[in-house]
């Protein structure tokens, strides 16, 4: 009997990892799929947003300076 219980426990223990492999676990896989291309997209977007933000700030600064200048009289 003792041996039988041990056998059952052993069966459960060894079958655990197998069941884990058999059933795919749901994770946030979008960013990791297709060779992690989405990560590259995210990096490029961050750089792009940063550069555009910088350009917009530059634009505003120039507008401010233009307003400070008096109108040409000639």
């Amino acid at each position: 009997m003792n041996k039988f219980i041990r056998l059952i426990f052993q069966f459960i223990l060894f079958s655990l990892p197998i069941s884990a492999i058999a059933q795919p676990v749901e994770m946030a896989d979008t960013m990791r799929s297709e060779g992690k291309i989405y990560v590259v997209v995210a990096i490029l977007l961050v750089i792009f947003v940063g550069l555009i933000g910088y350009l917009i700030l530059l634009d505003r600064k120039i507008t401010q300076i233009e307003k400070k200048l008096p109108e040409k009289k000639n």
Partner: peptide, 20 residues
Amino acid sequence: VWIATLRIRIRIINEKLLNL
């Protein structure tokens, strides 16, 4: 075009300052 217009505006500001 956007970048070019920024550079144009800087040049025009520069010119106005020189005139002043």
